[in-house]
Simulated assay, not measured.
Amino acid sequence: MTYRLGLTGSIGMGKSTTAAMFAAAGLPVWDADTAVHRLYAAGGLAVTPIREICPEATASGNVSRETLKRSIADDPSLLAKLEAITHPLVAADRAAFLAQTSTDIAVLDIPLLFEKSSQHEFHATLLVTAPPDLQRQRVLQRPGMTEQHFQTLLSRQMPDAQKRSLATHIVETLDLFATEAYVKSLIAHIRARHA
């Protein structure tokens, strides 16, 4: 049986970098955001149902995330409809990944793991975190990011302190070398306890 480690963290905490460290260590990593990109791309399973609820967000056979974001800002009720389409498709993509995985540990990178109360689907969870000032600095360095959009994203996420209380493991991403050492140590710990 594959040990399922749920990886999560708020925007700007270093989650993607940490996920890449697990991949570099040889573990298969499934990424929820990448799955959504596949679903929204031309031929993706979410394109047709999204066209039905938000035609302006689909063009050239794919979903424009920017247009979708603006449409949700104009009509917040659209978010629940979008989630009703996307979440089951993402869950099916994750299940297919796990069905094809034969390694001892798989990492599943899920930004809203605790917000959607999905932690019980995993053997353990790892919260990737950083101090608020570092988080803000990292996020505002991203192309096209504004303070307002950052605050909107934060408002949709559970506070870090609450996530800490739910997580099995926690890593602060202050230093790349320390984070990488933590990742290797955690892999060894899981293998030692669940071999």
Rank of each mutant, 00 (worst) to 15 (best):
175 D>I: 06
39 L>H: 10
29 V>C: 07
124 A>N: 04
172 E>S: 08
185 S>M: 12
21 M>G: 07
88 P>W: 05
188 A>W: 12
126 L>S: 01
130 A>K: 01
173 T>W: 10
153 L>E: 02
176 L>R: 14
143 P>C: 01
165 S>H: 15
34 T>M: 08
94 R>Q: 14
99 A>H: 11
195 A>H: 15
53 I>D: 09
71 S>W: 07
184 K>L: 15
29 V>L: 12
160 D>V: 08
185 S>A: 12
97 F>V: 01
64 S>G: 06
86 T>F: 05
4 R>S: 02
44 G>Y: 10
112 L>K: 10
12 G>W: 03
137 Q>F: 10
152 T>P: 02
111 P>R: 06
4 R>Y: 04
128 V>G: 00
174 L>Y: 07
79 L>G: 01
129 T>K: 00
38 R>M: 11
64 S>T: 04
34 T>R: 15
170 I>L: 07
147 E>F: 05
79 L>Q: 10
181 A>Q: 15
176 L>D: 12
46 A>Y: 11
104 D>A: 12
189 H>A: 09
77 S>F: 05
127 L>P: 00
143 P>F: 02
73 A>V: 07
187 I>Y: 15
88 P>A: 00
101 T>F: 11
83 E>T: 13
42 A>M: 05
110 I>V: 13
99 A>M: 07
71 S>L: 13
86 T>C: 14
191 R>T: 08
133 D>C: 02
179 T>M: 07
141 Q>L: 02
60 S>A: 12
51 R>D: 13
26 G>N: 06
25 A>E: 15
149 H>F: 08
25 A>M: 12
36 V>E: 14
178 A>K: 14
19 A>T: 01
127 L>W: 03
151 Q>G: 00
77 S>M: 03
66 E>K: 05
77 S>Q: 13
82 L>A: 12
180 E>K: 12
28 P>W: 03
156 R>G: 04
140 L>C: 06
160 D>L: 02
70 R>G: 02
181 A>E: 15
96 A>K: 10
41 A>C: 05
1 M>F: 10
22 F>W: 09
70 R>P: 03
115 E>V: 00
111 P>S: 06
195 A>K: 11
24 A>D: 13
136 R>Q: 10
172 E>P: 03
156 R>L: 14
155 S>Q: 09
145 M>P: 05
27 L>M: 10
100 Q>A: 14
89 L>A: 08
177 F>G: 01
88 P>F: 04
53 I>H: 12
18 T>S: 11
32 A>H: 11
150 F>D: 06
81 K>L: 15
120 H>G: 06
156 R>D: 01
4 R>V: 03
107 V>N: 04
80 A>R: 12
52 E>W: 09
57 A>Q: 02
41 A>V: 02
58 T>D: 06
176 L>H: 15
88 P>Y: 05
43 G>S: 07
191 R>M: 10
127 L>N: 04
180 E>C: 03
113 L>R: 01
62 N>P: 00
119 Q>P: 00
6 G>R: 04
42 A>V: 09
23 A>C: 03
111 P>F: 09
169 H>K: 10
119 Q>E: 12
183 V>I: 15
124 A>L: 00
150 F>E: 04
190 I>C: 13
78 L>K: 07
125 T>Q: 00
21 M>R: 13
152 T>Q: 15
28 P>N: 12
10 S>C: 13
62 N>D: 12
79 L>N: 01
153 L>M: 11
161 A>R: 14
193 R>F: 02
106 A>G: 01
